[in-house]
Design a protein around this nucleic acid. Sequence first.
DNA 1: TCCGCTTACACGTTTGAAGGGA
DNA 2: ATCCCTTCAAACGTGTAAGCGG
Length: 494
Amino acid sequence: MQSIRDLKTNFSGAPAVPMATGPDGYLQQGSIRMTLEDPDLWKTFHENGTEMIITKPGRRMFPHCKINLAGLIPCAKYILLVDMVPEDGFRYKWKVDDKWEVAGKAEPQPPCRTYLHPDSPALGSHWMKQSMSFLKLKLTNNTLDQHGHIILHSMHRYHPRFHIIQADDMFSVRWSVFQTFTFPETSFMAVTAYQNTKITKLKINHNPFAKGFRDEGTNSKRRPSKPPVCPEKKPRLSDEDSPPADFSRSSYEGYEADEDLLRGKAEAGGAAVVKEERYSPWATEREGGRTGSPVGNAPGDMYNTEQLVPAPASYLPYRFHGYGKSPSPTPSAASSHSSASARRGPFESRVPDVATVPDHDAAKPRPLHHPHPHHHHETGASVPCGPPHPQAVGAAPQDYPGGVLNVSLPPQVSHAKAPPPAGVLGHHAVYGPYGAAAEQSLGQWGGPGHAQFPPLRPPHHLPAEYGSQAMHHGYHHGNVAEWSQYPLFSYSCW
DNA sequence: TCCGCTTACACGTTTGAAGGGA
DNA sequence: ATCCCTTCAAACGTGTAAGCGG
């Protein structure tokens, strides 16, 4: 386990910048902390460019998302959600020279779904007593999926986003304050078949279900292995055969054992030292094109925001704002939207009054490389529950896809734990008090998306990774909330 | 022809029912 | 009757390879 502080240190592309709240700046809003389990495993994958298989019937993630929560009010109820956010507006292809290369604009985003943790809602004490796993979460490329799996496009990059919402049930989510967290090392490329053989090997070596494909296995089907696309791959694989000690385990059990070690290490603060590492080939690429990249994205790119659950009424006004007319009181907000200046000063994360809205507005090109969605986010002070006040609204133009919360409820949840309200639509969509038409929101998916953002730079540099500019910011304590380029609840129509 | 996607397959893990014993 | 443990089979989760289709 690695603390958020550790992440900040580990993933910052530049020395961590002190935040307004100090070294523990991530302890915001009730001091809620979220940490990712198995950070080293994630990092190992990330260094090689994590790939996640997506299939029609749905495929689990590996590594799967597992988090720890702290700082919750033990007797208060919370809902834990996760969704997948596009990293950029590109579609990629795997080149024979073992690199991901931009292959064009991203396809229009499929229906965004939010996966609700099966335990939701549960008391804070429950969330904190043990790590919470999203093992059952499945990814699919079937846009007509009826199982509630998260729909992604193949050859597109995504990263999971975790949301913790204080709410007694799904009905009260609308009025609740939520915090959002992301972990840089969890970004991945959605694929229908593995492209990078290194990733394949990592999966095989660490996923117990793939034990049959391990070298020491007796599986005959495993061989002959697929002839390498490129002859040079072989030698590389041999390098990969000698991964860091922590990952040369031959069994998952071994890995589990090490996990305790890692945890202890992290808790002892030992994991907080890695800096300026090239965690992924993507990051490597980005270094070349880093010119436009923010330098400081400091705090680990771990992003943590707190916002009011979106209310259409609040965002509507901004739909009509022309791009560039953002009332954002801070230059940072503007910078985050300009391609060239899509960098935010290291101090920016300290400015809690930035409000960037989802870049779903077709007219608003979004920085496609630097603005890495992993932002460290300083969350604002607690916001009283209730209708979002004007100040909580993003300052930048935002075409927030108001609509219905499209939550992917696990069967047991959808039927037992979170009975859908009267307004429930397919895909567990939930009408909110504001009652925007779900159909309308659904239609928005065909609307402006990343695909409509023309690449702002030649497709040679891969999107920024660590150290890239943060895009998400959520502040609302007396200020505006900066929204991620991707809405929290795509269908929300609270 | 290329490249991405789908499908069948073998293998391993997980899960839960069934049975037996204390 | 209840609990615990073991066994076993089905379901499920994997990556591979072949074939399909745009």
